[in-house]
Design a protein around this nucleic acid. Structure first.
Lengths: 105, 105
DNA sequence: ATAAAAGTACGACGCTCGTCAAACTTTGAT
DNA sequence: ATCAAAGTTTGACGAGCGTCGTACTTTTAT
């Protein structure tokens, strides 16, 4: 188990990869839950209807796209939305997706 | 050949479908070219590196998602970006993707 | 009338993606 | 020491997507 996963730098953010991450509804739900929360959230604490191994996959895709940052606390892996960094590179993108307007569709 | 294809109404726009349309680089390129132009563009006049049948497929996906409007002029099928309508439903989304900032990544 | 131009429709093919179960690893609690 | 909790890894499977070529349709030009 890799305990210190690599995160891309802001300079490496790539639109194609970010969109591929955000096109999946489960992953978009994860992003929305992180955006709505004001604390980090453990992988197992999300409201998603998939198995643990599938969840691991989704978190990996989000992390590698630069959307979330992960770090361990005990056996739990905590997740943070890299909001400011994403906004810096793709201004307006996360706003457009986390709006209640968009959420409703 | 269907000469009057159906276009979704604004009330039917769906985020999942729009993102699935925009995640493909060829389709995003079509949207970008339409956004940059100030006139309608015929299907055959786009700078895309795929066959005609594949192009037809991409235009269909964009149309059914509500991103473009199509109408015939002779044998040519003209395409228009439904910018205002998209902005109304998903404010900021197209802006975020057509920014030179985002284009460069 | 004939032919060219512009797309469309239809299969078909490969590849990727989301999904899961099972086995494993690491940490923390008893 | 043991055991439970939380994720990860691996391999597999099925579905869907992007792609193409070929045949077809509709319109326009000759």
């Amino acid at each position: 188990m890799e305990r210190t996963p690599s995160h891309p730098q802001v300079s490496q953010f790539n639109l194609q990869q970010v969109l591929e991450a955000l096109v999946d509804p489960v992953r978009r739900s994860i992003v929305a839950q992180l955006d709505a929360a004001d604390e980090d959230i453990a992988c197992g604490a999300f409201d998603i209807a998939v198995s643990k191994s599938t969840a691991t996959h989704h978190f990996k895709v989000l992390r590698e796209a630069g959307l979330i940052r992960q770090h361990y606390v005990g056996t739990s892996r905590m997740n943070t939305l890299r909001r400011a960094e994403m906004d810096e590179v793709f201004p307006g993108l996360l706003d457009a997706l986390t709006t209640p307007q968009a959420q409703g569709r």
